[in-house]
Design a protein around this nucleic acid. Structure first.
Length: 262
DNA sequence: ATGGTCGGTGGCCGA
């Protein structure tokens, strides 16, 4: 079984590329982020034509998460228990959706960006991650054999080598100690990054800003992760970051991350 | 050269 995660930066503008990629990638279940559409705008028929079921949560042009699967898609959970909202008034955001695909409990997560250290959105990001950690920790406590994959755009570069130049990020989000601390706390709750062992750095990234020729200059960030519960991690036989998908006409600014599970 | 690009939108905001 092959599972993947991909921040597509608008599913409507990317659908042709995503469909082409699905056809040749032999991926069974994909978590998508930043679909940037409402449920009724999601191009479900394009996935159905390729033999994939879809579940999606999207309210507007912001955020939006989906799971696409050809190995079953059951027990859909929109949002995780305790997931915070944002804004004034506080409203729910489409940033998390879970489903069981095959025997894997797959989560598509779009962690809040944070905007600036000290910003209201930054506090929201930290709270969101801590709440996620609490929920995920609870799932493992309830079932030590749970096959859980927390996948998505985490908007955190956990190590210095996960950005091309730490000096460029001095004082910015994604690299702050508070963000790294809560990311480590998720790991310490019983998950592991199952991609890194197969894609060692430095200089290995999943995201490259559209601006300033970042991709051509190999100046990226590693912010998209597949964190697997230990029982699932033990089954992982391969992983890759499909950076080919960052090339060509009309790419997302993120590459898909693919994991092979025995 | 202190910007540079995308996406969705609607006459900017978010990334």
């Amino acid at each position: 079984m092959r599972i993947a995660t991909w921040n597509v930066n608008s599913i409507r503008s990317r659908i042709d590329r995503v469909a082409d990629w699905l056809e040749r990638s032999d991926v069974d279940a994909v978590a998508l982020q930043e679909t940037k559409c409402r449920d009724d705008q999601f191009p479900e028929d394009r996935f159905a034509a390729l033999g994939y079921e879809v579940t999606h949560q999207g309210f507007s042009q912001w955020n939006g998460v989906a799971i696409v699967s050809r190995v079953g898609l059951v027990d859909v959970e929109v949002g995780f228990p305790g997931q915070p909202g944002y804004g004034d008034p506080i409203v729910d955001e489409a940033r998390a959706i879970g489903a069981t695909c095959g025997d894997v409990r797959l989560w598509s997560l779009y962690v809040p960006n944070g905007r600036e250290v000290g910003h209201e959105h930054y506090a929201y990001k930290l709270d969101w991650l801590e709440r996620l950690r609490q929920a995920a920790s609870g799932w493992l406590a309830a079932d030590p054999h749970a096959q859980v994959a927390l996948t998505g755009d985490w908007n955190i570069a956990p190590q210095d080598e996960d950005v091309w130049d730490m000096a460029a990020f001095d004082g910015h989000t994604h690299v702050s100690e508070a963000e790294r601390e809560v990311f480590r706390a998720v790991i310490d709750s019983g998950f592991s990054d199952v991609v890194r062992p197969f894609t060692p750095g430095p200089g290995v990234y999943t995201y490259w800003d559209y601006q300033r020729l970042r991709f051509a200059k190999r100046e990226g960030m590693r912010i998209d992760f597949v964190l697997a519960s230990q029982p699932l991690a033990a089954r992982v036989t391969d992983a890759m970051i499909d950076r080919q998908e960052r090339k060509g006409k009309g790419p997302s600014d993120h590459a898909p991350v693919i994991v092979t599970v025995s």
